[in-house]
Design a binder for these strands. Structure first.
Lengths: 206, 206
DNA sequence: CCTAGACTCAAACGATTGTTTGAAACGCGA
DNA sequence: TCGCGTTTCAAACAATCGTTTGAGTCTAGG
C-alpha cells in the first residue's frame, strides 16, 4: 500500500491542497491547480485519495489527529497536576495550534482552512469534523464547566460558543492586524495567543 | 435605467445569490443555480450586473450601505447624549446587524455571507469591503480608544481584532448552539446579542 | 533476470462553468 | 397605433471542472 517514494506524491498533494484551500476555498481551488502546485500528475489525486471530497477530509485528518491528541494531552496533564484554571485550560487548547502553525513555512495555513470549514454550515464537512473530532470540544467544555460552576448550562454554552468563535477567527489570522515590520511571524503569533487567552478568559469569567 | 418591473428581476437575483453564497460560498454557487432559484433567465445576471464578481459586490452593497449608516447613527447618538460605554457602543454595532437578520425570512443569511468574505484573505473582495466600509470600523475603534484610555495603541488593536472576530463569527451563527425547540428565531438571536455584548465588553476591559 | 504490483503519465470523458449573442417580447410616450 | 429603448429568452461560446482510462515506468521479491 505504501512505499518509500509515496511520501513524496501523497504528502505534496496534501500540502499544496492545504495552501490552495486556505487561499481560494474548497470549491475555488481546482484539482488541476493543486496538482500543478504539487508538481504531480492530475490523476494522482484520484489514485491516492479517490476523490476531491476525500482529499479534503484527508487534509483535515493529517493535522487534526495530532492536534487533538496534543490538546487533550495538555488538558489531562493540567488536571492531573491540579492546576487547571481558565488561563491554563485555554493555553492547553491554543498552544498546540500555535505550535502547529509555527513549524510550517506558510504559518497559519491550516488554521485558515479550518476556519473555512466552519463556514460550510450544512455539509458533509461539518458532519465529518463533528463526528471525528467533536469529542475534543466536549472534553474541554467539561473542563470549563468544572471551572465555572456558578454558570448554568445555558449560560456556559453561550459563552463557550462565543469563545470558540473568537479562537477560530483569531487563529486563522482573519483580522486586520498586520505584523509589524521587523517583528517575526513567531513573535506576532505568540503575542496573539497571549492576548487571546487574556481576552477569552475575561469573557468567560464575566 | 430602472423601471417598475426592474424591482423584480434585480432584487430576486440579489436575494437568491445571497442565500446561495451563504450556503455554498462564492465559488461554490454557480450563476445557473442562482438564476434558477431566482426564477429568472441565466443571462439576466450579466445584463443587470455585468459579471459574477460585480454581483457579489452588489450583494454586499445592498446590505452594508444601510447597515453602516445605522451603526454610525447609533454611535453618534450615543456620543451626543454623552452615555457612551463599552456596552452601549457594542450595542450600537450589534443591534443594527441583529435587526437586519431578523427582518428577513432566512434569518442570519447575510451575516453568513459577510463571514465568508473574511475568509477570502487576499482578493478583490477584502479590498472592496475595506475600501468602502472600513471607515465604520475606524470610527468604532476611535470610540473604543476613548473609552479605554489606559490601553496603549497596540494593546487596543489586539483586543479589537479579537472582538471583531467574536462578533463576526457569532453573528454568522457558525457555532454549535442549536436553537431550543419552542424558542423563536427572534428570541434566540436576541439572547445571542446580549451574551455577545457581555462577553466582548469583559474581554475588552480585562 | 523476470515478473507482479505500485505508481505515473498523457489523453480523453461528459458535465458544468461564466459569458456572449441576436432575436423575441415588453411597455411606455408620441 | 406606431416606434423605440428596456428587458427577457433560448442557444451557443470557449474554457474549465472532477473523474476515468489504458498504456507506460519503476522497483522490490523470488
Amino acid at each position: 500500500m505504501q512505499q518509500s517514494t509515496q511520501f513524496s506524491t501523497r504528502q505534496r498533494i496534501l500540502g499544496a491542497a492545504e495552501e490552495l484551500f486556505a487561499e481560494r476555498g474548497f470549491a475555488g481551488a481546482s484539482l488541476r491547480q493543486v496538482t500543478a502546485a504539487a508538481k504531480v500528475n492530475l490523476a494522482a489525486v484520484n489514485y491516492h485519495f479517490g476523490s476531491k471530497d476525500n482529499l479534503i477530509e484527508e487534509v483535515f485528518r493529517r493535522r487534526l489527529d495530532e492536534l487533538s491528541h496534543r490538546r487533550l494531552e495538555r488538558l489531562a496533564a493540567l488536571e492531573a497536576a491540579g492546576n487547571a484554571s481558565l488561563e491554563t485550560v485555554l493555553d492547553a487548547f491554543i498552544t498546540p495550534a500555535l505550535e502547529l502553525s509555527l513549524d510550517r513555512k506558510g504559518g497559519s495555513v491550516f488554521m485558515r482552512v479550518l476556519a473555512r470549514a466552519f463556514a460550510e454550515h450544512n455539509g458533509n464537512l461539518r458532519t465529518f469534523l463533528s463526528d471525528n473530532y467533536g469529542y475534543v470540544l466536549k472534553d474541554f467544555a467539561a473542563a470549563f464547566a468544572r471551572l465555572l460552576p456558578q454558570l448554568d448550562k445555558d449560560e456556559l454554552y453561550w459563552r463557550l460558543d462565543i469563545a470558540v468563535g473568537a479562537l477560530t477567527y483569531a487563529m486563522a489570522d482573519f483580522g486586520m492586524i498586520q505584523r509589524r515590520s521587523g517583528e517575526s511571524e513567531r513573535t506576532h503569533r505568540e503575542q496573539m495567543a497571549r492576548h487571546l487567552i487574556h481576552f477569552t478568559a475575561a469573557g468567560l469569567r464575566a
